[in-house]
């Protein structure tokens, strides 16, 4: 019998020649079924499909289950697991030092909405180029199941404790503070989350994505409003999301009556097919109004709530040079002798 040598097929690669394996991270130590793991998977998919050089990415996080997750994707990217609630300042510093980085911040609802609310708000005000993901499960997982500030009124802990304080809507907050791309998704909604993440990569400015991500151990029971079941029953998507990257060179007709097309900073196109006829994701005021309404109706609204690809970023406001500050040579950062002489002369 004749044998033909079988060759293993070359792994599929993306536009920069990397395989999806090149975007993988360490083995997760989170609970089996944790929504966070699904989000890590979507991040890997989005970065792979967008052909992002992993070495260009800086992963940043605070403290908590969510903040551990950067260890479980993209090992070829630098990562900084910092202190509780303070990732925004670390991210800001890193981006000021090197504006060529693609900053990806991963936080949780405790890390963001309680201890980190101050830094969160000021980050949103600055519109720093950064993708900020809240892996939102309504509880503190690592300390075993206390309520967070995004838990809904009346939701119940496993122990029977009922939450009697209103939740902070991080999306409404982010929009009102100046973030230029704000959306909510669900870790179980692969297609929507992937589309949003790809658009996020193309955006220049702060992207704030609140991703409901059920905690299978402490908040997936009857009476929880952040469980898989509750999300499947109550999720109300605003749009169907389609993302056309700049490098794809695809031109497909769309109906402006039913679809909003947003051209992103890099020329990519974010297409939002309206499921609600009147919703306009470029109007800040109506976005906040619609979110307030959703709370009153008990809906979990998902989709891109607000996007403004033209808002000036913090780096523009600072009039920073295009070269990363971290790599400026001595000849640029140390003024010459004549400068010191001039200053000394003025002080005589």
């Amino acid at each position: 019998m004749a044998t033909t040598p079988s060759s293993t097929p070359a792994p599929k690669t993306n536009r920069i020649g990397l395989a999806v394996l090149d975007y993988r991270g360490g083995k997760t130590t989170l609970c089996a079924g944790c929504g966070h793991n699904a989000i890590s998977e979507r991040i890997i998919d989005a970065m792979y499909e967008m052909g992002v050089q992993p070495e260009r990415v800086a992963k940043l996080s605070g403290i908590g289950c969510s903040s551990k997750s950067p260890a479980y994707f993209m090992n070829r990217s630098h990562s900084f697991n910092s202190v509780h609630g303070r990732m925004p300042s670390i991210a800001t510093g890193a981006m000021l030092a090197n504006r060529s980085l693609l900053a990806l911040g991963v936080s949780g609802d405790g890390d963001t909405a309680s201890i980190g609310i101050g830094q969160f708000i000021h980050l949103m005000r600055r519109n720093l180029p950064l993708i900020y993901i809240i892996e939102d499960n309504g509880v503190y997982g690592l300390t075993k199941g206390q309520f967070s500030a995004t838990a809904d009124l009346g939701s119940k802990l496993k122990t029977g404790v009922v939450n009697d304080l209103p939740p902070i809507d991080t999306c409404a907050l982010a929009i009102s503070m100046g973030a230029s791309f704000v959306g909510r998704s669900f870790s179980g909604d692969k297609r929507q989350l992937l589309g949003m993440l790809k658009a996020a990569i193309a955006h220049e400015g702060t992207v704030m994505l609140d991703v409901v991500s059920p905690c299978v151990t402490f908040n997936d029971h009857e009476g929880s409003t952040k469980s898989y079941k509750y999300m499947i029953d109550h999720e109300e998507p605003l749009q169907e999301i389609d993302f056309v990257p700049a490098f794809a060179d695809i031109s497909v007709e769309y109906d402006p009556g039913t679809t909003v097309e947003v051209t992103m900073h890099d020329g990519s196109r974010l297409r939002l097919r309206k499921l609600e006829e009147d919703y306009d994701p470029t109007n800040r005021t109506s976005a906040i109004h619609r979110l307030t309404e959703a709370h009153e109706k008990g809906e979990v609204l998902t989709g891109v709530f607000y996007v403004n690809p033209k808002a000036p970023s913090f780096l523009d406001l600072l009039n920073m040079t295009d070269q990363p500050l971290a790599h400026l040579p001595q000849s640029t950062v140390r003024p010459g002798r004549e400068v010191l002489q001039q200053v000394m002369e003025e002080l005589r």
Partner: peptide, 30 residues
């Protein structure tokens, strides 16, 4: 005409030092 530096008035001292640590990590003299 572009700045070879970034100076930020932070929201508090925690953020100020956080930015310094983030920038130092990424290679700036902060």
């Amino acid at each position: 005409g572009k700045a070879t530096f970034a100076i930020v008035q932070a929201e508090d001292e925690l953020a100020a030092v956080g930015m310094v640590v983030g920038a130092g990590w990424a290679g700036a003299r902060a």
